[in-house]
Design a binder for these strands. Structure first.
Lengths: 233, 233
DNA sequence: CGTTGATTTGATCAGAGTCAATCCCGGTGG
DNA sequence: CCACCGGGATTGACTCTGATCAAATCAACG
């Protein structure tokens, strides 16, 4: 079930049935992981990456003194940085932050699929460009924005990406991340995330509607950070 | 003159003479830019990217209120994010921060060279993986490190990258970035960069030796940030 | 020399971190 | 059905890193 990924790549370039079938074959063996379970470990040989089918994961790096930086959240349809397979050691880890289903993809799988369907190379590279786009956007957010703006940028990003994957068409989605994780992603402390979200709620920019569901006021948040562009395609 | 880029790609995978020649052809027309001159503008069609031959550039994004985030410094031998050519609009700009020579590369140039020399695809993708590695490292630095650690990480990164390009074999290099730029890269104010560098100098971690030359104590800086890995190959 | 941009320094301020106590809520077991 | 448990969220009090503002110095260059 790589439907989500297919859909995303097709948005860049329509896929022929054989191409779709080839992509399908990447998602043959579906694995699942419980919340909190590590799917890829850091500092080990990078022989495969993953495709997310359902649920959320996080790409992060832990420091020995306990600090942690979340580089990005992985959402359904994400194919995680295939280029990283060309570097000997992986410098990040991936852990499920909700119950999740995913598939593992090796470099061989990818080279084979591209040699058989060369036209798939471009959409896959486009996927990579998108990942870099997200990293740069994240960098801008952490480097030059204050707490409210960082959270606004993150919520907007998640909402846009989920919408592109067919979830959260309105601005409402379930946020599978604790405030600690939001802090580790935005470079804030968990306490400050709590305070900031409270004040955002007071100003009607976001609303918590039961069981970790979050509803955001898209245009309100965008007004806070007018310079941010939207996630590609 | 794409010698620097060739050398880097060859480190990943030895190149045959025709492959080298093909790369050479990318660097046919050499352009030059003065310090401060913009080479690529933001928010316009992304129809080409650049290869740096000599000098330094910076990839950055300006906000309308004057804030600026430098995503990375471009050093000799860098081929800037070719994947970004697959996204319609460029969300970053590139400006020379020293006198610079470079070449422009279009998507057509790249697809042609790869179709003629398919074996070059992998080194080029590896180049992309390296760029992502640097972005993630930068993210970790800005998100979870304090001022000294951020500057230490930046100086080490620059020194390593220059060393790989054949410059700065000892820890000494000329730093073509003002303190304002160092601040815009690390998410600090220029004033705080000044203070922090002063204290690092007091502790013999760095030394300023005339005309924007910087000598760093590699092992001393690494001790500050033991978790950071070194730049790939 | 004078001009201009960069760096340095001091004084003050504020945003965010830390520590610790408390609260809330869903899940569990009696 | 209810008391208890535990992880996450909240709140308050206080601290501290780094931002801001402004003045002074420095250095290169015409």
């Amino acid at each position: 079930m790589v439907r989500a990924l297919e859909q995303r790549l097709a948005a860049f370039q329509p896929l022929t049935p054989p191409e779709s079938a080839a992509l399908e074959s990447l998602g043959q063996s579906v694995k699942s992981a419980a919340k909190g379970q590590q799917m890829l470990a850091a500092d080990c040989a990078a022989d495969h990456t993953i495709i997310i089918h359902r649920g959320w994961g996080m790409i992060y790096r832990d420091l020995t003194d306990g600090r942690r930086q979340i580089m990005q959240f992985c959402l359904p349809g994400d194919l995680v940085d295939p280029c990283s397979l060309l570097v000997s050691r992986r410098d990040f880890a991936i852990t499920a932050i909700s119950p999740i289903t995913y598939s593992e993809v090796s470099l061989d799988d990818l080279t084979q699929i591209i040699s058989e369907h060369p036209r798939l190379a471009l959409p896959l590279l486009w996927n990579e460009a998108r990942e870099i786009y997200l990293l740069r956007r994240h960098l801008l957010s952490i480097g030059r924005m204050n707490a409210v703006e960082r959270l606004a940028a993150l919520f907007l990003e998640l909402s846009e990406r989920l919408a592109l994957a067919g979830h959260a068409p309105d601005g409402s989605f379930s946020l599978h991340a604790t405030q600690q994780m939001l802090g580790d992603a935005t470079g804030l402390s968990a306490v400050h995330v709590s305070r900031t979200m409270r004040s955002m709620e007071d100003e009607q920019l976001i609303e918590r509607t039961g069981r970790n569901r979050l509803a955001i006021d898209r245009s309100g948040l965008q007004k806070l950070i007018p310079d941010l562009t939207t996630v590609p395609s």
